[in-house]
Design a binder for these strands. Structure first.
Lengths: 239, 239
DNA sequence: CGTCGCTTTGACACCTCTCAAGGGGGGTGG
DNA sequence: CCACCCCCCTTGAGAGGTGTCAAAGCGACG
């Protein structure tokens, strides 16, 4: 069930059998949780990182006036909080957006990896820098793209990221979240997201309904978003 | 001249003499460059990372319509592109905002560190995850804070980050950039940044003029920004 | 069959952008 | 030494994108 993670890693690097075994050895308990459950609170001391194997999760920050900004969406195969290994406690919270299955990776075991397996350590390090690449692209969206482009861009990103782990095709993917959650990713209100989705639908590009994204015109969608997947580092390299 | 970097590291962790020596050994040539010089282009293959010792730099992405989003500002002591060690090539460009002095850290030397010095490796890894923390806070600003709060927040962040390396006090700091650059950080137009700065000035909070930030009311400014420096991880911990 | 959460739509407000013009300061060349 | 120029800052007027408020529709579920 952790195969999605190795799928994701192997898109970007060569992972030896020994490394795969070591990484599997890092993992401990499997836990299931319902949707909408905040299982890492801001500032909380963490002794393990969380590998997501099923479902969608989000990193988010709350503001004093009740607003919320989601800073990252996690798909199966992602370490949701590998960065807590170096940070110790997080500057944000992490919640499940759908029912999720996770596997824990205790930090003391990760530490052993970093002390014995340099290449695998670089692969894990890369994984956190890849998260940062996505953060930067979201900054660009939030800062410079209008609501339509921004929404289209997120849908394109998720198509690629879910596609890597076999959960999306060019025709679409399951995205069982509400328009309100989408709005919290996009720095918009749910009312406006609704209007934008209508516009994308009427343009014949993509339809988001009932937790399902149906892509009718992927090139068209990517054109609207000016989507360039380079920031997702899909090519295989040695780290 | 690389002392600012060790100042920054030592705020967050214990660095042994041996580790300091190893890190100094990683560094090679010192280079000076003028303001406004893009010295890392998007997608370019990189064989070294860049430690900034003097001046300000920015990571940015250009959009097809000529807009630009700055995703991060670097202050002295920062590795501007340590993440290129694991990424190999960057998804964004890096430029000098002011005249800068940098020191290069060849990747093959960094690799030796990651194969022999686990703790120092984690410290370097931490440094890239700290960048990601700042990216996330910028996402929150860009997505949820209005122009006034957003501007105030950036000025607070720079006060702290420059303060760590002795380049800011509670009374202010040098910030020799234009309002246009500020706008490219904040996802605004320079015209609107100008209006916001006027509002902050007339509220008696802060004055930005001639490349100098004069803070007249730091608590007031932090209140407007709802600034909480937790995301900058100012406490010392073992990584 | 009622309730509750999510979606959808409309009218209007407001924040930020766009376009435009003028002012100021520093550098450069005559 | 002065004049000019260029870049940046400043301000105004109007436009437009997104938010706010409100109400109705819809579907899942008990």
């Amino acid at each position: 069930m952790t195969d999605t993670h190795f799928l994701k890693l192997r898109v970007r690097d060569r992972i030896s059998d020994e490394e795969e075994a070591a990484l599997r050895g890092v993992l401990s308990d499997t836990i299931d949780m319902p949707a909408g459950y905040t299982f890492v609170h801001r500032g909380e001391e963490l002794g393990y990182s969380t590998l997501l194997t099923q479902g969608l999760m989000a990193r988010y920050k709350d503001l004093s006036d009740g607003q919320r900004q989601i800073t990252h969406i996690h798909v199966p195969g992602d370490f949701a909080d590998l960065h807590s290994f170096t940070l110790k406690h997080l500057d944000h919270a992490v919640m499940s957006l759908t029912p999720c299955r996770i596997v824990r990776a205790p930090h003391e075991r990760l530490r052993v990896v970093t002390e014995t397996m340099p290449h695998l350590t670089r692969v894990l390090w890369f994984s956190t820098t890849l998260d940062a690449c996505i953060h930067r692209e979201w900054e660009v969206s939030l800062g410079r793209r209008n609501a339509l482009q921004r929404t289209a861009h997120l849908l394109c990103e998720l198509q690629v990221r879910l596609g890597i782990v076999g959960l999306a095709t060019a025709a679409g993917y399951a995205l069982p979240i509400t328009q309100t959650v989408l709005a919290e990713c996009l720095g918009l209100t749910s009312v406006h997201v609704n209007r934008v989705l209508k516009e994308l639908r009427e343009a014949g590009l993509v339809e988001f309904r009932g937790g399902q994204v149906d892509i009718h015109d992927l090139p068209g969608l990517e054109r609207v978003a000016e989507f360039d997947p380079a920031y997702l580092y899909l090519e295989r390299r040695d780290r």
